[in-house]
Amino acid sequence: MTTRLLIAGLLALVLAALFLLPYGVSYFYIFVATEILIMGLFAASFNLVFGYTGMLSFGHAAFFGMGSYTTAMLLLHLQVPLVWTLLAAMLTSMLLAAVIGFFCVRLNEVYFAMLTLAFGMMVFSVAHQWRSVTNGSDGITGFPLTEFGLGLDLQLANPLVYYYVVLVVVVLAAALLYLVTRSPFGLILKAISENPERVAFCGLNERRFRLIAFIVAGLFAGLAGGLFAPFNRVASPDMIHWSHSAEAVLMTILGGSAYFLGPFFGAMVFVLLETWITSYTDHWMLVLGIILALMVMFFRRGILGTVLDRVLRR
């Protein structure tokens, strides 16, 4: 019980720190923090499929990209309030996840990974080559940031305001995602990752549960993408590329996939390292590679995972 209280206290502290962050750091770090929150949500949504259900997807960026393009195109062509574009982003990426998931969940392990990679590259090619709609490799740019909607008077173009919008949306989404993982549905996913045959023997349609997990993960990735485009001011095919899917994998491994907040922590480490290291060298990927190699060799459960393991004596 005391450890639970401790964790609740720490969480409250983190939230308070995030809320007060703009008063304590230089203005530039508002952008860094915004990116961390969004990428954290993206990685956490990936972890529902990876850590919780035991499926390694290499196409998760497709849903992030779908969300980004949905938001960017709605803002560009229709100037819809942001809240509706976010809902639309969730809807379109959910539909895309349903279609891709329908095929992918039929396979396991490396075949599943390969098929998600293939679908991811298909979506990438469409975004990259359908110039008349997606503007090709330049992506959707120059869309206006209008209002948030719901009668709220928010200047979204102000980075500080946008940070708080992202903070609130990501915290709500993360809470929802956490509830999903703690629900009976979430426990079944956990069981599937540990022993799919046994779950099937219990009379549960294992494939259906995996599909639902895939769709829910796609939906949250779409929300992350929908938040990212207005921050980034571009929806580009790079966001759909498999290397962007790999970023979610890396962040999750860096933080630790066994804990819900692991991917968020991993996103923080990843983005901060990228920000700092690129100031000194253009070879940041090399440094990242060395860090990852050391992590996988010595801290398999990720940074946050290893620390929490110690604290909770697992």
């Binding site: 530039f28 952008f31 330049d138 980034n232 571009v234």
Partner: peptide
Amino acid sequence: KADAAIQAARK
């Protein structure tokens, strides 16, 4: 990349 350049400009 446009997004990388925007981030660079902000930095």
